[in-house]
Amino acid sequence: MIQLDQISKAYGPVTALDGLSLRVPAGSLYGLLGPNGAGKTTALRILCTLLAPDRGGVQVAGIDALQQPRQVRERLGYVAQEVAIDKILTGREMLRLQGALYHLATPHLRQRTEDLIELLGMGGWIDRRCGTYSGGMRRRLDLASGLLHQPSVLVLDEPTVGLDIESRAVIWQVLRQLRDAGTTVLLSSHYLEEIDALADRLAILDGGRVIAEGSPSELKRALGGDRVTLRVREFSDETESARVQQVLQGCPGVRQVVVNRAQGHSLNLVVDGEAVIETLRQQLNQAQLPVFSLSQSRPSLDDVYLQATGRTLMDAELEVVGVRDPKAERKQAMR
């Protein structure tokens, strides 16, 4: 349904996408997971015909998006990250404008508007000015705008960032219902839980390319092993955690030991089965190290990311927080 082939895109010296390929099957709910700066937004902007790639091909519903952008726009709904609404218009006026831009006939538009207001629980707000909306209400209006023309493909860029719990629940439910009704839904997120809970399949993006692809359970299963998070103290320092790492690294059955700096220098281990846990305790005992906490779990999507990139998603986020240039990003989005 959606197909990106070897897409590359650079903003001046900065490479945003580096040969990205993606195939989203029709009627699936597909997640694009990656830290900020991984290229998610750029990929979606290219898909929505807002941006031309430097190289590569884009197909939506069998239509070449670079050759026939208007045909693609007719079939595609886009809920952007930067919420662009006219604060001085009411929600209903925004939808009416949107409907005219998609050339909907008035009676049909009116019916669609009523249906979407009900579906998204916007009844109390639709006739107030958008400037008074909360983030959640704005996002619902954006979703309604994206759905107005009954697109066969819905694309959402981080639709639940910073939303209240109720709005998030509403949006999740609508996305599932849409998928069940046959719409292809592609959403980006840097929330692991969101993708894990929602997506039928996902691609993990890093550095402008896909580093892992599959269903959440496939990806986790392929990773294998159990995850252990260990602390010898509530907050260890670097020296101590390095020492623990050394002690545990040689342990039989321990595949990998990583120090998680983002979480008080706790240690993340990959081990072969439960039996290894007892060995771990013995080793620490011998080295006269206490065990403050030890928890064990199945692999998560974060572990998939860790395996592929050598860092946790959280660390990747923290890395770019200081480096991001909001001004440059705004300029990229501006015509």
């Binding site: 050339h103 249906d115 979407l116 009900e118 579906l119 009954q150 697109p151 009704a181 046959g182 719409t183």
Partner: peptide, 29 residues
């Protein structure tokens, strides 16, 4: 939240989506 009618959630059938309208009607709209 109320459950929506199927009409609300289904994508427009492909044969109906790009309804043939005159360019002028679209432009003026």
């Amino acid at each position: 939240m109320t459950s929506a009618s199927p009409l609300t959630l289904h994508a427009a059938p492909p044969d109906q989506a790009p309804a043939e309208r005159s360019a002028f009607a679209d432009l003026s709209q």
